[in-house]
């Protein structure tokens, strides 16, 4: 057996390892209902900000806590506790991706991604 074959086997082993572990461990996009059913699993939940519910950011109490309400893509509404400061331009977001877990009836997120209106489509002229 040539060394190159041993190397080849290692390559294949690593490849299988990568695919296997990533399929098993990495989080999936989901919704609140599924997150509620598995409170210990981390989920990426996609949804929209409910602008009618209060957003609380009191940096004097805790600069790293921001609460608001999000409606997921299935229409389920949950209170969200984001363990970060309130993102800039939060109100302008069109879509939110939260990364975190369900705790009781609150979704505790440790990270957030926001999609803001595209700079390509806001066709207002400046006169």
């Amino acid at each position: 057996m040539k060394k190159i074959h041993i190397v080849g086997i290692i390559v294949i082993a690593v490849a299988i390892g990568v695919i296997f572990t990533s399929l098993r461990s990495s989080a999936t996009y989901s919704d609140f209902t599924e997150a509620l059913a598995n409170p210990d699993t981390e989920y990426h939940v996609v949804g929209k900000l409910d602008k009618n519910q209060p957003q609380v950011y009191e940096p004097k109490i805790n600069p790293d806590e921001f609460t608001f309400t999000m409606i997921d893509n299935k229409g389920v509404e949950k209170k969200v506790v984001l363990h970060k400061s309130k993102p800039q331009d939060f109100e302008r977001s069109e879509q939110i991706v939260l990364i975190g877990k369900m705790q009781g009836d609150e979704f505790h997120a440790n990270d957030i991604l926001m999609k803001c209106p595209s700079k390509y489509n806001d066709g207002k002229p400046q006169i």
């Binding site: 004097k60 790293d64 440790n110």
Partner: peptide, 20 residues
């Protein structure tokens, strides 16, 4: 620098990063 004021902050998610 942050003095923890909120007592029931979850430990795992506790990611104090900011200062006021």
């Amino acid at each position: 620098a942050v003095i923890k004021k909120a007592e029931n902050v979850n430990k795992e998610l506790d990611s104090q990063k900011n200062i006021l």
